[in-house]
């Protein structure tokens, strides 16, 4: 039981940045914008979050700055998307390459330094509940934030007017605009919220789960969260499940090191074939033969890809 409890605690805290990032990416994609720079954004925000935390010795400042930086990068992406009508994929790729190399270069002086620590906050009363109390209510504030983020993002997208407007812009920009919705503003908003969450996720790596800075500190996490966003079918809850499952495999891998080395090397790789199979399966559901797949499974796995995801804004929207 203790083993189980410990594993869950580690999974929840280790998955914190993944959850934050994948929800950010989901919100951005719901507005129709793929933030393909996730890999680069997370990396550079991890560096600058750490630098700010290190200089000021206040972790919160590091988190805040990383959010601003992530939002700033999102502003640039939005400018390319809305004003210049450039291809989102091209912009994202170039940004990723640029930002990840830039962070390696700028981060040389900050390798293996000690920055500020963030402490765990036990929530009074709740943390006294046996088992659940330890698993859920004995974490750092950033982990609480990531947990709260899941239902809030769902609520924001599905139950608020702005969320609905953002989704409508991502589904059919022309229709949304003909109903008087400022599509450009909605896309901008979605991208900014998404970008700032990616930034926050970056700082969470360097100030919490993968404490410190080294070259290629967050390599590949950006690509992973892009895949989890698809896996999550653009639904915050499912995206979170994806992020936690990924975290679980990683934790199991670490624990397996003491048992067998082979297993500890295979487990971290497992998400990738699983991801590919799920994507193939989603594709299969959409084909003719897919109708034999039970409804329950379809509704669990198939996602609501925003119709206008990744598309340039129509010329009619000036």
């Amino acid at each position: 039981m203790i083993f189980f409890e410990n594993t869950l605690i580690t999974v929840i805290s280790l998955s914190t940045p993944l959850v934050i990032a994948v929800i950010g990416e989901t919100i951005s994609e719901k507005s129709g914008v793929i933030n393909l720079s996730a890999e680069g954004t997370i990396m550079i925000c991890a560096l600058f979050g750490f630098i700010f935390g290190y200089i000021s010795d206040v972790a919160t400042l590091g988190f805040l700055f990383a959010m601003f930086l992530g939002a700033g990068i999102a502003v640039f992406i939005s400018y390319c998307d809305i004003k210049l009508r450039m291809d989102q994929i091209a912009v994202g790729f170039v940004l990723t390459i640029l930002l990840s190399h830039l962070s390696n270069y700028l981060g040389q002086d900050y390798v293996r330094l000690n920055g500020p620590m963030i402490t765990k906050i036990q929530i009074p009363l709740l943390s006294k509940i046996p088992f659940m109390g330890n698993v859920l209510f004995n974490h750092s504030f950033i982990t609480y934030l990531s947990i709260l983020l899941i239902p809030s993002a769902w609520f924001f997208l599905n139950k608020t007017t702005i969320g609905l407007s953002i989704r409508s812009a991502g589904e059919n920009p022309l229709a949304a605009s003909s109903r008087g919705i400022d599509v450009k503003k909605m896309r901008f908003l979605g991208t900014i919220i998404g970008g700032s969450l990616l930034g926050l996720a970056g700082a969470t790596f360097s100030l919490y789960t993968k404490y410190g800075w080294s070259e290629g500190h967050t390599t590949n996490y950006g690509w992973i969260i892009l895949a989890i966003a698809i896996f999550g079918g653009w639904n915050p809850y499912r995206a979170a499940v994806g992020a936690y499952s990924f975290g679980l495999l990683q934790v199991l891998a670490i624990k397996a090191q003491s048992v067998t080395l082979a297993l500890s090397q295979i487990l971290p790789l497992l998400p990738f074939p699983i991801m590919i199979f799920v994507l193939i399966f989603i594709q299969y559901i959409n084909t003719k033969d897919g109708k034999y797949v039970p409804r329950v499974i379809v509704s669990l796995i198939a996602g609501n890809q925003p119709k206008a995801l990744g598309e340039k804004l129509p010329e009619e929207i000036k």
Binding site: L164, R167, S168, E171, N172, L174, A175, A176, S178, N304, Q305, P306, K307
Partner: peptide, 10 residues
């Protein structure tokens, strides 16, 4: 001009 992924109410 509508939204295929939204419900009619939405």
């Amino acid at each position: 001009l509508d939204f295929s992924n939204l419900s009619i109410l939405e």
